[in-house]
Design a protein around this nucleic acid. Sequence first.
DNA 1: AATTGTGAAACTTTTCACAGCA
DNA 2: TGCTGTGAAAAGTTTCACAATT
Lengths: 231, 231
Amino acid sequence: MARGGYLRPVKTVKNEIDSKISDSTIRRLSTYHRTLSILESTGTETISSRKLAEIENITSAQIRKDLSYFGSFGRRGLGYNVSMLKTKIGKILGLDKKWEIILVGSGHLGKALMNYDEFEKKNFFITKIFEKDPSKTGTMIGEIKVEHIDDLEKKVDPDRESLAVLAIPPEDVQSIVDRLSKIGIKGVLYFASRTVSVPRNLIVRNEDTTIELETLTYHITNKTERPVRTT
Amino acid sequence: MARGGYLRPVKTVKNEIDSKISDSTIRRLSTYHRTLSILESTGTETISSRKLAEIENITSAQIRKDLSYFGSFGRRGLGYNVSMLKTKIGKILGLDKKWEIILVGSGHLGKALMNYDEFEKKNFFITKIFEKDPSKTGTMIGEIKVEHIDDLEKKVDPDRESLAVLAIPPEDVQSIVDRLSKIGIKGVLYFASRTVSVPRNLIVRNEDTTIELETLTYHITNKTERPVRTT
DNA sequence: AATTGTGAAACTTTTCACAGCA
DNA sequence: TGCTGTGAAAAGTTTCACAATT
């Protein structure tokens, strides 16, 4: 293990500033959290890593290892308490706090995000909407009044809204990312098919449907065996 | 999912053409392809792995290694011919063929996908739309007439349409995946926040916005250094 | 002089396998 | 007995560094 002590063998529950947990682990924790929510709502009280692994289509060792970076949440011989594990993972991911999100772009994708049920389950709330088309300024989407993009700096309070989701065309992404970074927004998710240069104080993620489709066409074209992971 | 004990993910591949190319490599090839398109359209004729690496925010060795799995496309001392490399990568990803896609679900997300400009650049064409709300049957979205979901099996020709994109609620995903698999669809991309059990003959991908947001909230909450990768 | 292509090294992630505990 | 937690081994991925080539 060449990671040379990124985790002391102590039972630290919270990792501090510099431990290096892989992105894959974080993404899996997110799926565990979502599965645990469903199990909790169906009244399941306890689950073993083996059973959870079956649902997730991964190995049980993977689950135990992922959790071990953050502490010991199970009971030997018994498994994990569903609600307790869900709460613990939620805390690791920061889902115990309410997250206010600004949405930039109010086209079809923006509206789809506004209606997305999963958000509030995760404590995510879109609280402001910005749009460059002036004819839309002042119109309502759900309970939120659309603001003009020129007012971004004026209307956003980064102490409240720390996340932004961009449902805008590729050519607008870089400038909006730059403006959001200046305001002090902490994280941005955008959907456009484009690379952006990322200011240091900001975490940026991209979700690009064409990349996903191209992994499909690659595998189909090259007749590769189906990879089991779906997330 | 219980397929007799827990299954260890079928990572092993016994197939004709390729050996074991990682998913990360395929995803990067997809981004190279998109960058090369832009370079081509701006008249750039040649690019070195170093310059491409700067754009992509990765190392040049990574690019050369990714390409080396598939052949030698550059000229020592000179770099790569932009159009030629774009064509070669396109061929690897299967983008030299036209892909007809069926869309299931015609809500906001479905409409956003219908309007998505990037698709045709990649030779992706949504040619059929299915919807469970009968009041929408027969209405037009763009140039396509919406069909009722009951007619899925009747109206889909898997020799033409090999891909499906699902813009439907989580509770409908599993049954649609099962039906598409029976018809002989080869690849499915869905957006709902949910794991599905995947029939053997089908490749399934999931794009889940809450997972992306949770990687953001994790990093912000734990004040981890910004990871450079944005895609 | 510049830059590819690639083995080998370095590093990361996953899986194994079992001690230890309920 | 059943199942977790975890070092160690195995597998996988990225980076290094340089011979080969234009």
